[in-house]
Design a protein around this nucleic acid. Structure first.
Lengths: 208, 208
DNA sequence: GCATCTCTCTACCGAACGGTAGGGAGGCCA
DNA sequence: TGGCCTCCCTACCGTTCGGTAGAGAGATGC
Protein backbone atom coordinates (compact mmCIF):
# COMPACT_ATOMS: atom_id res chain seq x y z
CA UNK A 1 0.00 0.00 0.00
CA UNK A 2 1.59 3.25 -1.11
CA UNK A 3 1.65 6.48 0.85
CA UNK A 4 -1.40 7.90 -0.91
CA UNK A 5 -3.59 4.96 0.05
CA UNK A 6 -2.23 4.93 3.59
CA UNK A 7 -3.07 8.61 3.85
CA UNK A 8 -6.63 7.98 2.68
CA UNK A 9 -7.01 5.25 5.27
CA UNK A 10 -5.56 7.30 8.11
CA UNK A 11 -7.63 10.34 7.12
CA UNK A 12 -10.82 8.27 7.10
CA UNK A 13 -10.06 7.01 10.59
CA UNK A 14 -9.04 10.37 12.03
CA UNK A 15 -11.77 12.45 10.37
CA UNK A 16 -14.30 9.92 11.67
CA UNK A 17 -12.91 10.01 15.21
CA UNK A 18 -12.14 13.71 15.63
CA UNK A 19 -13.94 15.48 12.81
CA UNK A 20 -12.53 17.54 9.96
CA UNK A 21 -11.71 20.59 12.05
CA UNK A 22 -10.34 18.49 14.88
CA UNK A 23 -7.86 16.64 12.68
CA UNK A 24 -4.62 18.34 11.65
CA UNK A 25 -2.62 17.51 8.56
CA UNK A 26 0.36 16.79 10.81
CA UNK A 27 -1.64 14.15 12.67
CA UNK A 28 -2.57 12.38 9.43
CA UNK A 29 1.01 12.61 8.17
CA UNK A 30 2.32 11.19 11.44
CA UNK A 31 -0.07 8.23 11.17
CA UNK A 32 1.34 7.50 7.72
CA UNK A 33 4.94 8.04 8.85
CA UNK A 34 5.76 11.01 6.67
CA UNK A 35 5.88 14.80 7.06
CA UNK A 36 3.02 17.21 6.53
CA UNK A 37 4.68 18.68 3.42
CA UNK A 38 4.96 15.20 1.89
CA UNK A 39 1.26 14.63 2.52
CA UNK A 40 0.49 17.86 0.68
CA UNK A 41 2.43 16.51 -2.28
CA UNK A 42 -0.23 13.77 -2.76
CA UNK A 43 -3.23 16.00 -2.01
CA UNK A 44 -3.03 19.67 -2.95
CA UNK A 45 -4.92 20.75 0.18
CA UNK A 46 -6.64 19.43 3.28
CA UNK A 47 -9.98 19.99 1.61
CA UNK A 48 -8.92 17.90 -1.40
CA UNK A 49 -7.94 15.05 0.91
CA UNK A 50 -11.29 15.31 2.62
CA UNK A 51 -13.11 15.14 -0.70
CA UNK A 52 -11.10 12.08 -1.73
CA UNK A 53 -12.08 10.30 1.48
CA UNK A 54 -15.78 10.97 0.87
CA UNK A 55 -15.58 10.03 -2.80
CA UNK A 56 -14.20 6.65 -1.83
CA UNK A 57 -17.34 5.88 0.19
CA UNK A 58 -19.90 7.26 -2.25
CA UNK A 59 -18.18 5.48 -5.11
CA UNK A 60 -18.73 2.17 -3.35
CA UNK A 61 -22.49 2.65 -3.24
CA UNK A 62 -22.81 3.87 -6.79
CA UNK A 63 -21.18 0.57 -7.78
CA UNK A 64 -22.86 -1.79 -5.33
CA UNK A 65 -26.44 -0.50 -5.26
CA UNK A 66 -27.41 -1.19 -8.89
CA UNK A 67 -25.87 -4.66 -8.80
CA UNK A 68 -27.65 -5.41 -5.54
CA UNK A 69 -31.04 -4.32 -6.80
CA UNK A 70 -30.68 -6.36 -9.97
CA UNK A 71 -29.25 -9.51 -8.45
CA UNK A 72 -31.61 -10.05 -5.55
CA UNK A 73 -35.11 -10.17 -6.91
CA UNK A 74 -38.44 -10.80 -5.24
CA UNK A 75 -38.84 -11.05 -1.52
CA UNK A 76 -35.14 -11.54 -0.88
CA UNK A 77 -34.50 -8.05 -2.10
CA UNK A 78 -35.20 -6.42 1.25
CA UNK A 79 -33.03 -8.85 3.19
CA UNK A 80 -30.16 -8.59 0.75
CA UNK A 81 -30.24 -4.82 0.70
CA UNK A 82 -30.44 -4.37 4.46
CA UNK A 83 -27.74 -6.95 5.07
CA UNK A 84 -25.36 -5.35 2.60
CA UNK A 85 -25.81 -1.91 4.13
CA UNK A 86 -25.30 -3.27 7.63
CA UNK A 87 -22.31 -5.33 6.52
CA UNK A 88 -20.60 -2.39 4.82
CA UNK A 89 -20.86 -0.11 7.83
CA UNK A 90 -20.12 -2.68 10.52
CA UNK A 91 -17.04 -3.76 8.57
CA UNK A 92 -15.67 -0.28 9.26
CA UNK A 93 -17.77 1.83 11.63
CA UNK A 94 -15.61 4.84 10.75
CA UNK A 95 -17.53 5.02 7.48
CA UNK A 96 -20.77 5.50 9.37
CA UNK A 97 -19.25 8.09 11.67
CA UNK A 98 -17.80 9.94 8.69
CA UNK A 99 -21.12 10.14 6.86
CA UNK A 100 -22.88 11.25 10.01
CA UNK A 101 -20.33 13.99 10.62
CA UNK A 102 -20.57 15.11 7.02
CA UNK A 103 -24.32 15.62 7.27
CA UNK A 104 -23.80 17.60 10.47
CA UNK A 105 -20.84 19.66 9.25
CA UNK A 106 -21.89 20.50 5.70
CA UNK A 107 -25.65 20.09 5.51
CA UNK A 108 -26.04 22.08 2.31
CA UNK A 109 -23.27 20.38 0.38
CA UNK A 110 -24.42 16.97 1.59
CA UNK A 111 -28.04 17.68 0.72
CA UNK A 112 -27.05 18.47 -2.86
CA UNK A 113 -24.93 15.34 -3.09
CA UNK A 114 -27.60 13.09 -1.62
CA UNK A 115 -30.40 14.44 -3.76
CA UNK A 116 -28.24 13.72 -6.78
CA UNK A 117 -26.81 10.34 -5.78
CA UNK A 118 -29.24 8.71 -3.38
CA UNK A 119 -32.68 10.08 -4.23
CA UNK A 120 -33.01 8.17 -7.54
CA UNK A 121 -32.32 4.84 -5.87
CA UNK A 122 -34.61 5.68 -3.02
CA UNK A 123 -37.38 6.33 -5.53
CA UNK A 124 -36.81 2.89 -7.04
CA UNK A 125 -36.97 1.12 -3.68
CA UNK A 126 -39.97 3.20 -2.64
CA UNK A 127 -41.62 1.92 -5.82
CA UNK A 128 -41.02 -1.68 -4.69
CA UNK A 129 -42.60 -0.86 -1.36
CA UNK A 130 -45.70 0.58 -3.04
CA UNK A 131 -45.98 -2.56 -5.14
CA UNK A 132 -45.77 -4.62 -1.94
CA UNK A 133 -48.56 -2.53 -0.46
CA UNK A 134 -50.81 -3.34 -3.41
CA UNK A 135 -50.16 -7.06 -3.05
CA UNK A 136 -50.86 -6.91 0.67
CA UNK A 137 -47.39 -7.98 1.82
CA UNK A 138 -46.43 -4.53 3.09
CA UNK A 139 -48.48 -2.51 5.55
CA UNK A 140 -50.73 0.14 4.02
CA UNK A 141 -49.71 2.61 6.71
CA UNK A 142 -46.03 2.69 5.68
CA UNK A 143 -44.78 5.99 4.25
CA UNK A 144 -42.19 4.58 1.82
CA UNK A 145 -39.74 7.49 1.58
CA UNK A 146 -39.90 8.37 5.26
CA UNK A 147 -39.55 4.70 6.18
CA UNK A 148 -36.41 4.33 4.06
CA UNK A 149 -34.85 7.44 5.58
CA UNK A 150 -35.45 6.11 9.07
CA UNK A 151 -33.97 2.70 8.31
CA UNK A 152 -30.87 4.40 6.94
CA UNK A 153 -30.76 6.48 10.12
CA UNK A 154 -31.04 3.37 12.23
CA UNK A 155 -28.17 1.67 10.49
CA UNK A 156 -25.78 4.59 10.22
CA UNK A 157 -26.26 6.26 13.57
CA UNK A 158 -26.70 2.89 15.27
CA UNK A 159 -23.39 1.61 14.00
CA UNK A 160 -21.63 4.93 14.37
CA UNK A 161 -22.42 5.02 18.07
CA UNK A 162 -22.50 1.29 18.80
CA UNK A 163 -19.15 1.36 20.58
CA UNK A 164 -20.34 4.12 22.88
CA UNK A 165 -24.00 3.36 23.47
CA UNK A 166 -23.65 -0.41 23.16
CA UNK A 167 -21.93 -0.32 26.52
CA UNK A 168 -25.41 -0.25 28.05
CA UNK A 169 -25.83 -3.69 26.48
CA UNK A 170 -22.38 -4.71 27.67
CA UNK A 171 -21.00 -4.22 24.20
CA UNK A 172 -23.11 -6.86 22.53
CA UNK A 173 -23.25 -5.37 19.02
CA UNK A 174 -25.01 -8.43 17.57
CA UNK A 175 -27.99 -7.78 19.80
CA UNK A 176 -28.23 -4.28 18.33
CA UNK A 177 -28.06 -5.55 14.76
CA UNK A 178 -30.63 -8.28 15.36
CA UNK A 179 -33.09 -5.86 16.96
CA UNK A 180 -32.49 -3.36 14.17
CA UNK A 181 -33.40 -5.90 11.52
CA UNK A 182 -36.39 -7.05 13.53
CA UNK A 183 -37.71 -3.49 13.87
CA UNK A 184 -37.19 -2.75 10.19
CA UNK A 185 -39.02 -5.90 9.09
CA UNK A 186 -41.83 -5.87 11.64
CA UNK A 187 -42.76 -2.29 10.91
CA UNK A 188 -42.65 -2.88 7.15
CA UNK A 189 -44.31 -6.23 6.38
CA UNK A 190 -47.80 -7.37 7.22
CA UNK A 191 -48.21 -10.62 9.14
CA UNK A 192 -49.35 -12.12 5.87
CA UNK A 193 -46.28 -10.82 4.04
CA UNK A 194 -43.97 -12.38 6.63
CA UNK A 195 -45.84 -15.69 6.41
CA UNK A 196 -45.59 -15.73 2.62
CA UNK A 197 -41.86 -15.03 2.80
CA UNK A 198 -41.41 -17.95 5.22
CA UNK A 199 -43.31 -20.24 2.86
CA UNK A 200 -41.20 -19.26 -0.13
CA UNK A 201 -38.00 -19.72 1.83
CA UNK A 202 -39.06 -23.22 2.88
CA UNK A 203 -39.88 -24.08 -0.73
CA UNK A 204 -36.48 -22.83 -1.91
CA UNK A 205 -34.64 -24.86 0.68
CA UNK A 206 -36.62 -27.99 -0.20
CA UNK A 207 -35.73 -27.50 -3.86
CA UNK A 208 -32.01 -27.57 -3.11
CA UNK B 1 -31.47 37.86 29.04
CA UNK B 2 -28.01 38.62 30.39
CA UNK B 3 -24.74 38.05 28.56
CA UNK B 4 -24.11 34.70 30.20
CA UNK B 5 -27.40 33.23 29.03
CA UNK B 6 -26.96 34.73 25.57
CA UNK B 7 -23.53 33.12 25.41
CA UNK B 8 -24.97 29.72 26.37
CA UNK B 9 -27.59 30.06 23.63
CA UNK B 10 -25.13 31.15 20.98
CA UNK B 11 -22.67 28.43 21.97
CA UNK B 12 -25.39 25.77 21.74
CA UNK B 13 -26.26 26.93 18.26
CA UNK B 14 -22.69 27.24 17.01
CA UNK B 15 -21.34 24.05 18.60
CA UNK B 16 -24.29 22.19 17.07
CA UNK B 17 -23.73 23.65 13.62
CA UNK B 18 -19.93 23.62 13.39
CA UNK B 19 -18.72 21.37 16.17
CA UNK B 20 -16.56 22.20 19.17
CA UNK B 21 -13.31 22.41 17.26
CA UNK B 22 -14.93 24.30 14.42
CA UNK B 23 -16.31 27.04 16.66
CA UNK B 24 -14.00 29.80 17.94
CA UNK B 25 -14.53 31.80 21.09
CA UNK B 26 -14.47 34.96 18.98
CA UNK B 27 -17.38 33.66 16.90
CA UNK B 28 -19.46 33.01 20.02
CA UNK B 29 -18.52 36.40 21.47
CA UNK B 30 -19.47 38.13 18.24
CA UNK B 31 -22.88 36.43 18.24
CA UNK B 32 -23.46 37.83 21.73
CA UNK B 33 -22.12 41.25 20.83
CA UNK B 34 -19.14 41.31 23.18
CA UNK B 35 -15.40 40.60 22.94
CA UNK B 36 -13.67 37.28 23.40
CA UNK B 37 -12.06 38.42 26.66
CA UNK B 38 -15.46 39.39 28.05
CA UNK B 39 -16.77 35.95 27.20
CA UNK B 40 -13.90 34.43 29.13
CA UNK B 41 -14.96 36.48 32.12
CA UNK B 42 -18.21 34.48 32.36
CA UNK B 43 -16.65 31.11 31.54
CA UNK B 44 -13.06 30.45 32.63
CA UNK B 45 -12.27 28.50 29.47
CA UNK B 46 -13.77 27.25 26.22
CA UNK B 47 -14.03 23.78 27.73
CA UNK B 48 -15.98 25.15 30.70
CA UNK B 49 -18.45 26.83 28.35
CA UNK B 50 -18.85 23.58 26.49
CA UNK B 51 -19.56 21.70 29.69
CA UNK B 52 -22.15 24.30 30.71
CA UNK B 53 -23.95 23.87 27.38
CA UNK B 54 -24.14 20.10 27.84
CA UNK B 55 -25.17 20.33 31.47
CA UNK B 56 -28.13 22.47 30.43
CA UNK B 57 -29.46 19.65 28.24
CA UNK B 58 -28.79 16.75 30.60
CA UNK B 59 -30.28 18.71 33.47
CA UNK B 60 -33.54 18.98 31.56
CA UNK B 61 -33.90 15.21 31.27
CA UNK B 62 -32.96 14.47 34.84
CA UNK B 63 -35.85 16.75 35.78
CA UNK B 64 -38.39 15.74 33.17
CA UNK B 65 -37.92 11.96 32.95
CA UNK B 66 -38.98 11.03 36.49
CA UNK B 67 -42.01 13.31 36.37
CA UNK B 68 -42.98 11.88 33.00
CA UNK B 69 -42.73 8.28 34.11
CA UNK B 70 -44.78 8.95 37.22
CA UNK B 71 -47.48 11.11 35.68
CA UNK B 72 -48.39 9.07 32.63
CA UNK B 73 -49.34 5.60 33.78
CA UNK B 74 -50.58 2.58 31.90
CA UNK B 75 -50.73 2.39 28.14
CA UNK B 76 -50.41 6.12 27.68
CA UNK B 77 -46.91 5.94 29.09
CA UNK B 78 -45.33 5.03 25.78
CA UNK B 79 -47.12 7.77 23.86
CA UNK B 80 -46.37 10.40 26.46
CA UNK B 81 -42.70 9.48 26.64
CA UNK B 82 -42.12 9.35 22.90
CA UNK B 83 -44.03 12.57 22.34
CA UNK B 84 -42.07 14.42 24.99
CA UNK B 85 -38.73 13.30 23.58
CA UNK B 86 -39.77 14.23 20.05
CA UNK B 87 -41.19 17.55 21.23
CA UNK B 88 -38.02 18.50 23.12
CA UNK B 89 -35.70 17.87 20.21
CA UNK B 90 -37.92 19.25 17.43
CA UNK B 91 -38.40 22.42 19.50
CA UNK B 92 -34.67 23.01 19.02
CA UNK B 93 -32.94 20.58 16.63
CA UNK B 94 -29.59 21.99 17.76
CA UNK B 95 -29.99 19.96 20.93
CA UNK B 96 -30.14 16.76 18.90
CA UNK B 97 -27.17 17.77 16.78
CA UNK B 98 -25.21 18.65 19.90
CA UNK B 99 -25.83 15.30 21.57
CA UNK B 100 -24.97 13.45 18.39
CA UNK B 101 -21.72 15.36 18.03
CA UNK B 102 -20.87 14.75 21.63
CA UNK B 103 -21.18 10.99 21.23
CA UNK B 104 -18.96 11.17 18.15
CA UNK B 105 -16.39 13.56 19.59
CA UNK B 106 -15.97 12.21 23.11
CA UNK B 107 -17.19 8.61 23.07
CA UNK B 108 -15.50 7.66 26.32
CA UNK B 109 -16.64 10.67 28.33
CA UNK B 110 -20.16 10.36 26.93
CA UNK B 111 -20.31 6.64 27.63
CA UNK B 112 -19.50 7.26 31.29
CA UNK B 113 -22.08 10.03 31.51
CA UNK B 114 -24.79 8.00 29.82
CA UNK B 115 -24.20 4.88 31.86
CA UNK B 116 -24.57 7.02 34.95
CA UNK B 117 -27.49 9.20 33.89
CA UNK B 118 -29.52 7.29 31.31
CA UNK B 119 -28.96 3.61 32.02
CA UNK B 120 -31.06 3.57 35.23
CA UNK B 121 -34.06 5.06 33.46
CA UNK B 122 -33.62 2.74 30.54
CA UNK B 123 -33.72 -0.20 32.94
CA UNK B 124 -37.02 1.06 34.34
CA UNK B 125 -38.61 1.43 30.92
CA UNK B 126 -37.21 -1.92 29.80
CA UNK B 127 -38.97 -3.37 32.83
CA UNK B 128 -42.28 -1.94 31.60
CA UNK B 129 -41.66 -3.52 28.21
CA UNK B 130 -41.04 -6.93 29.79
CA UNK B 131 -44.28 -6.59 31.75
CA UNK B 132 -46.06 -5.80 28.49
CA UNK B 133 -44.58 -8.92 26.95
CA UNK B 134 -46.00 -11.05 29.76
CA UNK B 135 -49.47 -9.60 29.28
CA UNK B 136 -49.27 -10.15 25.52
CA UNK B 137 -49.50 -6.50 24.53
CA UNK B 138 -45.88 -6.27 23.45
CA UNK B 139 -44.23 -8.59 20.97
CA UNK B 140 -42.22 -11.44 22.47
CA UNK B 141 -39.44 -10.88 19.95
CA UNK B 142 -38.63 -7.36 21.16
CA UNK B 143 -35.21 -6.93 22.77
CA UNK B 144 -36.14 -4.19 25.27
CA UNK B 145 -32.78 -2.49 25.78
CA UNK B 146 -31.77 -2.68 22.12
CA UNK B 147 -35.22 -1.48 21.09
CA UNK B 148 -35.00 1.57 23.33
CA UNK B 149 -31.55 2.46 22.04
CA UNK B 150 -32.79 2.31 18.47
CA UNK B 151 -35.82 4.48 19.17
CA UNK B 152 -33.56 7.07 20.76
CA UNK B 153 -31.36 6.84 17.68
CA UNK B 154 -34.34 7.34 15.43
CA UNK B 155 -35.46 10.45 17.25
CA UNK B 156 -32.10 12.11 17.76
CA UNK B 157 -30.41 11.43 14.46
CA UNK B 158 -33.70 11.79 12.62
CA UNK B 159 -34.29 15.25 13.99
CA UNK B 160 -30.63 16.25 13.83
CA UNK B 161 -30.54 15.62 10.11
CA UNK B 162 -34.15 16.38 9.22
CA UNK B 163 -33.27 19.71 7.62
CA UNK B 164 -30.73 18.03 5.37
CA UNK B 165 -32.27 14.68 4.55
CA UNK B 166 -35.84 15.86 4.73
CA UNK B 167 -35.20 17.61 1.44
CA UNK B 168 -35.84 14.26 -0.23
CA UNK B 169 -39.36 14.56 1.16
CA UNK B 170 -39.54 18.20 0.12
CA UNK B 171 -38.93 19.32 3.67
CA UNK B 172 -42.04 17.75 5.14
CA UNK B 173 -40.80 17.14 8.68
CA UNK B 174 -44.24 16.06 9.91
CA UNK B 175 -44.14 13.09 7.56
CA UNK B 176 -40.87 12.02 9.17
CA UNK B 177 -42.25 12.33 12.68
CA UNK B 178 -45.45 10.45 11.84
CA UNK B 179 -43.56 7.59 10.22
CA UNK B 180 -41.13 7.51 13.14
CA UNK B 181 -43.95 7.08 15.63
CA UNK B 182 -45.61 4.49 13.41
CA UNK B 183 -42.42 2.42 13.16
CA UNK B 184 -41.77 2.63 16.89
CA UNK B 185 -45.30 1.51 17.76
CA UNK B 186 -45.74 -1.13 15.08
CA UNK B 187 -42.50 -2.87 15.91
CA UNK B 188 -43.23 -2.78 19.65
CA UNK B 189 -46.89 -3.69 20.20
CA UNK B 190 -48.71 -6.80 19.12
CA UNK B 191 -51.89 -6.41 17.07
CA UNK B 192 -53.76 -7.32 20.21
CA UNK B 193 -51.91 -4.69 22.22
CA UNK B 194 -52.79 -1.99 19.71
CA UNK B 195 -56.44 -3.10 19.71
CA UNK B 196 -56.61 -3.00 23.51
CA UNK B 197 -55.10 0.49 23.54
CA UNK B 198 -57.72 1.69 21.04
CA UNK B 199 -60.48 0.25 23.20
CA UNK B 200 -59.20 1.94 26.33
CA UNK B 201 -58.87 5.25 24.55
CA UNK B 202 -62.44 5.03 23.28
CA UNK B 203 -63.66 4.27 26.80
CA UNK B 204 -61.75 7.25 28.22
CA UNK B 205 -63.21 9.61 25.65
CA UNK B 206 -66.70 8.30 26.30
CA UNK B 207 -66.21 8.89 30.02
CA UNK B 208 -65.49 12.57 29.45
C1' DG C 1 27.21 10.40 -17.63
C1' DC C 2 23.46 13.12 -17.40
C1' DA C 3 18.88 14.81 -17.33
C1' DT C 4 14.40 13.86 -15.54
C1' DC C 5 10.72 12.33 -12.72
C1' DT C 6 8.97 10.97 -8.17
C1' DC C 7 8.80 11.53 -3.60
C1' DT C 8 10.36 13.22 0.69
C1' DC C 9 12.57 16.43 3.50
C1' DT C 10 13.72 21.08 6.42
C1' DA C 11 12.54 25.70 7.04
C1' DC C 12 9.51 29.08 6.95
C1' DC C 13 5.10 32.11 6.26
C1' DG C 14 0.84 34.67 7.86
C1' DA C 15 -3.35 33.83 10.16
C1' DA C 16 -6.16 32.22 13.72
C1' DC C 17 -6.50 29.98 17.91
C1' DG C 18 -7.25 29.83 23.38
C1' DG C 19 -5.91 32.39 27.06
C1' DT C 20 -3.76 36.38 30.10
C1' DA C 21 -2.70 41.12 31.89
C1' DG C 22 -4.31 45.10 33.12
C1' DG C 23 -7.12 49.15 32.79
C1' DG C 24 -11.59 51.84 32.68
C1' DA C 25 -16.61 52.84 33.30
C1' DG C 26 -20.67 52.44 36.07
C1' DG C 27 -23.38 50.90 39.99
C1' DC C 28 -23.63 49.97 45.10
C1' DC C 29 -22.77 50.46 49.87
C1' DA C 30 -20.51 52.49 53.90
C1' DT D 1 -16.62 60.89 49.07
C1' DG D 2 -14.02 56.78 48.80
C1' DG D 3 -13.56 51.92 48.24
C1' DC D 4 -15.26 47.93 45.96
C1' DC D 5 -17.47 44.88 42.80
C1' DT D 6 -19.18 43.80 38.19
C1' DC D 7 -18.51 43.72 33.55
C1' DC D 8 -16.38 44.86 29.34
C1' DC D 9 -12.52 46.61 26.95
C1' DT D 10 -7.60 46.83 24.25
C1' DA D 11 -3.32 44.72 23.75
C1' DC D 12 -0.61 41.02 23.82
C1' DC D 13 1.28 36.09 24.56
C1' DG D 14 2.81 31.40 22.79
C1' DT D 15 1.15 27.71 20.00
C1' DT D 16 -0.74 25.49 16.20
C1' DC D 17 -2.83 25.67 11.99
C1' DG D 18 -2.85 25.05 6.52
C1' DG D 19 0.15 25.94 3.05
C1' DT D 20 4.67 27.29 0.29
C1' DA D 21 9.63 27.33 -1.24
C1' DG D 22 13.20 24.92 -2.41
C1' DA D 23 16.62 21.41 -1.90
C1' DG D 24 18.09 16.46 -1.78
C1' DA D 25 17.84 11.37 -2.53
C1' DG D 26 16.82 7.53 -5.39
C1' DA D 27 15.14 5.34 -9.44
C1' DT D 28 14.47 5.43 -14.64
C1' DG D 29 15.53 6.26 -19.45
C1' DC D 30 18.62 7.96 -23.09
Amino acid sequence: MDAREQALDAATRLFAAQGYGGTSLSAIAEAVGIRKASLLYHFPSKEALHRAVLDQILEHWSKVLPRLLEAAAGDDRFDALLHEVVRFFTADPDRARLVLREVLDRPDAMRARLVEAVAPWMAVIAGYIRKGQESGEIRESVDPEAYLLHVIHLVISGIATADTLGSVLEGDVDRLVRELERMAKTSLFTEEGLARARQRRAKNEAAE
